[in-house]
Amino acid sequence: MKRVAIYAVALTVLLAFVAPLVWLAVISLKTRAQIYADPSTFLGFDPTLDNYRSLLTGRFPVFIGNSLVAAMASTALALAIGLPAAYALVGRRLRAGGLVRSGVLLFRMIPPIALLLPYYLLFRTAGLLGSLAAVSVAHFAFSIAIVTWMTRAGFEAVPGEIEEAARIDGASPLRVFLLIAIPITRAPIAASAIFALLTSWNEFLFAATLSSPRTQTIPVAVAGFAGDVYVSWGELAAATVIGLVPALGLAALGQRWLLSGMAPGAFK
């Protein structure tokens, strides 16, 4: 009985939050005239798939691929660098850890606009301007602070005795890190990975500035529908809805890792 009530509340909360997206999906099935009809209609209209058709037959699928590549590359990079860094920053290992941690944060505190031109010049010098590598590296720089911070707290909780015991048994530090610390810390790691993926997925300013026509990510392509004369709401909504699908898939994958260590019904 209690379980049913909790499901009901959870579903209500979820609906309250995703209602705007449901409405967006409705818009994506409308023609322009229907969108601006007053009063708005939820169901009483002839749905059309034209918006989707024109998107999927165009270059949009390529942009989805670009977004996937940029998201996965930047996340992989953030984890590859952020996890060892977080592990090393654990309080008992590094006395100046607090200072370094604050330093990592500084980068995230700067308004992105101030970093735009430096990045542009940097990638131009490196000859990477317009490539997905440039976009990925920029996105990596945004998520690294979160990965480092959020996983450090987890590593902090790994009991020192276990590591010590493993080391006495002859395990190298790398093995301790990979085989003991990471599995114990997997929940924050999964959450950070999900966040890093989404950071790249929805980032617009840098993707728009550093990409080329071939390497646009989804947000850059979607921005093309927000015109100087009018907004193509139908296509914009359809593109946004399509863009949600792979992101939800990636997040679902991360979720499985997030909770796999959980004892069933641990929190009744």
């Binding site: 990477l128 317009g130 590598a133 093309g224 015109g227």
Partner: peptide, 25 residues
């Protein structure tokens, strides 16, 4: 491998391709 794959692809930018940057209209 992944980064090599997404690095700059210059080969297509030959003398017969121009880039035009504009506004949605």
């Amino acid at each position: 491998i992944a980064f090599a794959a997404i690095g700059p692809a210059r080969s297509q930018d030959d003398a017969h391709t121009i880039t035009v940057t504009g506004i949605s209209s």
